[in-house]
Design a protein around this nucleic acid. Structure first.
Length: 361
DNA sequence: TATTCGTGGTC
DNA sequence: TGACCAAGAAT
């Protein structure tokens, strides 16, 4: 009966919100239960949290807020500063979109984030999840917020046996039946409560069903099936790619190169090197990729790094040029740049490149 | 619908 | 150690 379903979803929300009052996590971008947080903080944190753990995000979020206390400050900043501050967080396209989004909101929205999912979705770097999350958390707008945590919670609560990602549509339908439909039902707290439940109780492995506020109505718990859900299709094994990188020092400076605007590590800095291919680079490839002709020493060992869809093994070569070496290579190739050692921490160097540099020491 | 995008932590 | 995976978006 439709009435029973309404009653069940109402009880679900009540139990969840009651639990949230006393068990929520205190996070730097959050407002206390019952209040809405600053849209700038919500947006910044949500973008950083895309496929990234809370623990990793916290110091970056605090660093960004210190450096750019307002949306306007961020919009006025140079992209290079933002890329440098983002270095290490991964998914670097997010940093570009962050900058573009800040400028768009300043220019087209008078510096104020739109409060509807529909408008938020138009902004760069804001997809279905982030639009729903900002609308709910910053503006108390009813929205069907679904992230990885909520996906897992719903798959268990509703005993959805279809494997992901095929189950996404079904999970969204079931979640929408439970979610708030009006502001008074605290959509922001509801979304964050579900996420906290997923992070602290309904965890991927060994869920703590004994402490779960909605255990009594959880279908997976009733079947003893919570831990095995959600099912997932097996992921293909990651191929191995190989390449070489050249550490070229001139005095105390290191030669770096800007990566292309598109693709992997877009717009970030790198140690110059070969392309990354399934076969190790040939001698010709090495010669062609080296920015200068010099006597290189091959360093012992390899730098290994795991990307989302492949593994990488880099051989590192090193050379030391005299401090007055003056071949104008940075003019011949404008992507190249000499960077003093003490400036390296402030460069837009992704983790894999920091590994390459550290491999030397 | 399927790929391409990082990184660090966990078990 | 290796496989999994975390507040997904863009194409």
């Amino acid at each position: 009966m439709a009435n029973d379903l309404l009653k069940a979803s109402h009880e679900f929300r009540e139990q969840l919100l009651a639990w949230y009052e006393t068990h929520h996590r205190k996070l730097p971008w959050r407002a206390p239960p019952g209040e809405t947080a600053d849209p700038y903080h919500v947006w910044l944190s949500e973008v950083m949290l895309q496929q990234t753990t809370v623990k990793t995000v916290i110091p970056y979020f605090q660093g960004f807020l210190r450096r750019w206390p307002t949306l306007e400050a961020l919009a006025l900043s140079e992209r290079e500063e933002i890329l440098s501050a983002w270095a290490g967080l991964g998914y670097y396209r997010r940093a570009m979109n962050l900058h573009a989004c800040a400028r768009t909101v300043m220019e087209d929205y008078n510096g104020t984030f739109p409060n509807s999912e529909q408008e938020l979705l138009k902004l760069p770097g804001i997809g279905p999840y982030t639009a729903a999350a900002i609308a709910a958390i910053a503006f108390s707008r009813p929205a069907n917020v679904i992230d990885g945590n909520i996906e897992r919670v719903i798959a268990r609560y509703c005993l959805i046996n279809t494997p992901l990602p095929a189950a996404k549509a079904e999970i969204a339908r079931r979640a929408s039946k439970l979610a708030p439909t009006q502001s008074a039902q605290r959509p922001g707290d509801y979304a964050q409560a579900l996420m906290d439940l997923g992070a602290m109780i309904c965890t991927p492995k060994a869920p703590s069903c004994g402490r779960c506020p909605v255990q009594r109505s959880c279908s997976a718990f009733a079947q003893g099936a919570a831990e095995k859900l959600p099912l997932r299709l097996k992921k293909p094994v990651k191929p191995l790619r190989r390449g070489a990188a050249f550490l070229i020092y001139r005095g105390d400076s290191l030669l770096l190169r800007r990566r292309p605007e598109q693709g992997l590590l877009a717009g970030m800095m790198e140690v110059p090197g070969t392309g990354w291919t399934s076969e190790p680079p040939s001698k010709q490839a090495l010669l062609a990729a080296a920015p200068i002709t010099a006597k290189f020493a091959k360093l012992r060992g390899l730098v290994r790094h795991t990307f989302t869809h492949f593994e990488l093994e880099l051989t590192v070569y090193r050379t030391q040029l005299p401090g007055d070496y003056d071949e104008p290579i940075t003019q011949r190739d404008p992507r190249l740049k000499w960077v003093a050692k003490h400036e390296l921490p402030r460069q837009a160097l992704p983790s894999v490149m920091r590994k390459v540099i550290a491999h030397d020491q």
